[in-house]
Design a protein around this nucleic acid. Sequence first.
DNA 1: TCAAAAGTGTTTGTGGTACACCCATGG
DNA 2: CCATGGGTGTACCACAAACACTTTTGA
Lengths: 223, 223
Amino acid sequence: MAQDFSKPAVTVDVVIMTLRDDDLHVLLIKRDHVPYRGRWAIPGGFVHLNESLEAAARRELKEETGVTDVYLEQLYTFGDPRRDPRGHVISVAYIALVPEPLAVKGGSDAREARWWSIQQLPPLAFDHARIVDYALTRLRYKIEYSAVGFRLLPETFTLSDLQKAYEIILAEPLDKRNFRRRIIEAAVIEPIDEVRSGEGRPARLYRFRPDAVAEVKARRLFP
Amino acid sequence: MAQDFSKPAVTVDVVIMTLRDDDLHVLLIKRDHVPYRGRWAIPGGFVHLNESLEAAARRELKEETGVTDVYLEQLYTFGDPRRDPRGHVISVAYIALVPEPLAVKGGSDAREARWWSIQQLPPLAFDHARIVDYALTRLRYKIEYSAVGFRLLPETFTLSDLQKAYEIILAEPLDKRNFRRRIIEAAVIEPIDEVRSGEGRPARLYRFRPDAVAEVKARRLFP
DNA sequence: TCAAAAGTGTTTGTGGTACACCCATGG
DNA sequence: CCATGGGTGTACCACAAACACTTTTGA
């Protein structure tokens, strides 16, 4: 793609996160062009003319994972002129939460793509380490006052699944009874008429209530 | 300025807010070029090549108000390709909080610029009404868990000044004793050895503690 | 019948909210 | 001495946190 650098260029980059093997994972692709050839990077690309930012983000998401209907949120816009050695490239970063470790559909080109534990990332291209870090901070913050956590789970799940997801994201254990009480009282999920059997007592399955208010404002004044 | 539209252009637009006459005000400039000639707009302009976004925002801020050392925060990036009739123009919006109704230093050109009450804004150019609306939402939200409110006040202020600022922003009355207790306990301000006299009993003056933690995270899980 | 995970209530403490009167100064 | 805004403490309530045992199933 020929680039002209008479004004800044704009990319979208998407931090695609999921839960896998009891750990939060990020999808990275191995770059096959300079700069940072061979380095891992979060998926992204230039915004097309007359394409909205969200459309560009969804396009990248679909190219890398094949998924189309997932949670997507604008994270922050990174505009340091030195962040890309090719010239001034502004990156509008997004967070995507995908509900399960969907098969990584390789892009149209044969780029290597895989999930990495957010605890053990390889060196990343550009300022992508900073972007991932910022995404994790935002996710941790947001999960406490909104219902985004559910977006990392499949359509039906048990309360233990949900608690485990929260514990993974927050990186700390939660009390089972308090957790259940709060989730139930928040009325963001509803039981369905099924259970899941496995080792031990079968667990009731729940689903997210699509009509639930996703976000609640807190009155605090610096708690 | 000649524009080329082979790829999206990028502007920064700054919602500059202050407190004036017991009301939250926004600085608007009257456009003297098409499109939206004669309409009011928030200050902004194209990002220069090799200029960071924050530098561009501070440049606009200085051009319009002359102030240099104020609170500035990235708000959101608006990228709908139809938001500017000239073509695809992406706007990275910022919020600036200025501590008092500084004299509006006219820009280098003789554009008209003035403060408008956020309650009674004129019709705005582009999607700027939406941007201002979003800025107000963010400010209201943020003032509850961080110390940004102080950035709208002069260096020294009374507790009544501060409470009034909060009441104006939140558009609701606050209890005087509870407000004072919380602010004091948060340890974000400190008294100075002066009082301000006026009608009634003189009031102790305070200043913001620059070493105070500006933001505190709350544990909630959908309250 | 044992292992493994699901499910369930109560107590205690902390923080939020509501609320009314005296104080210091200037005119 | 009066008007004006500044400054202060307590009681109640609601929500958050800590905590242990019983239930249900499959092997």
